[in-house]
Design a protein around this nucleic acid. Structure first.
Lengths: 192, 192
DNA sequence: GTCTATAAATTGATAGAC
DNA sequence: GTCTATCAATTTATAGAC
């Protein structure tokens, strides 16, 4: 688990993009954070946008994996949703800087890179939609708008990257549990 | 209701900041969108950051007003929450560009301006927290973590600025209704 | 209050030595 | 694969005419 110069560069770029946004970050700032010269940034990535894409791709792949793994832990739709929301919120809290770049800098990608990332995002939404549809079929969930509700559930996890700070009022695990509980309650059939 | 040059400038800056972020927006881009020369940007605002603050202050004040008005439409905590979430989501959808700047460019403000905006944000959260506490006291809501749950409820409204497009799958009114319904269901006491 | 012109600094990216 | 040095373009902001 040695830290390569490439890893140091990616970590530095994540911090800079999360703090100042892609457009507000200079390649000099990234280089300084990674303790490198401005020229060293271009050894591993041809442009600033390619550096963003590398971060965004890794982040989306990791987040998708977290969601897929959580979905596979049970056959019960309710338990799948609880596990997905719990894991997805906890991941976003534990990786809030990566999460901020992943979620907010989509528009800064090139058209080609945006298409690749958009596909990963679709697959994330489908994991949630599948569980919602299964729950409705089994009669254990009440959902009228599957697409809109899937997005709303994911919003609980995603929006925390906007304000989460390590060492704040909630730990990552606490937010995971809270959001999972709220999500399940949100989808239960109402009182007859 | 005449459109002044100042309004044109603010509208142009909102569009530019929402599309490219504060750091990624040039004053030339703002000027071009407002059909002005680069120098005209500095007639009404001394710096690019002051232009952002003017937008952010207006936006936060407007959003707070929407929330306060919704809270005052009923004495029932459940109805207050439904009205707040419905109005807050609808406002963010109808003003998604302003909402994006308001929610995502907080960190680009100066320390002084950030303190002013932070106070407005605290007041928004308190409107929700007050209704949650009242609902728990009356026994009509079940909330274990008031702060965390207030944030989660607001996340439903806020996160839509990340992806909402006018003319998309949902109208602003539909999202308002959907989110209000989900929020109330999220807070109901569970089956004994 | 609008413009043209421009200053002064910063930017993304490259050249070429080690 | 790292550095120093630098280019060419762009950036924020200002000066001064109308």
């Amino acid at each position: 688990m040695t830290t390569t110069a490439r890893d140091r560069l990616l970590d530095a770029a994540v911090e800079a993009f999360a703090e100042h946004g892609f457009g507000g970050t200079t390649t000099r700032d990234i280089a300084a954070r990674a303790h490198m010269s401005p020229a060293a940034v271009y050894v591993h990535h041809a442009t600033k946008e390619e550096l963003l894409f590398a971060i965004s791709l890794r982040g989306h792949e990791h987040a998708l994996e977290v969601l897929a793994n959580a979905a596979s832990t049970s056959d019960s739709p309710v338990e799948q949703i609880a596990a997905m929301v719990q894991a997805f919120s906890e991941w976003h809290a534990r990786n809030s800087r990566i999460g901020r770049v992943v979620q907010y800098e989509f528009g800064a990608l090139s058209a080609e890179h945006r298409a690749i990332i958009a596909d990963l995002r679709r697959r994330m939404e489908h994991h949630l939609q599948d569980a919602l549809v299964a729950g409705v079929d089994e009669g254990v969930l009440e959902v009228t708008d599957v697409r809109g509700t899937a997005r709303a559930v994911l919003s609980l996890s995603v929006d925390l990257v906007r304000w989460f700070e390590p060492g704040g009022a909630h730990t990552a695990a606490e937010l995971g549990r809270l959001h999972a509980d709220l999500a399940v309650r949100m989808l239960r059939p109402g009182p007859a």
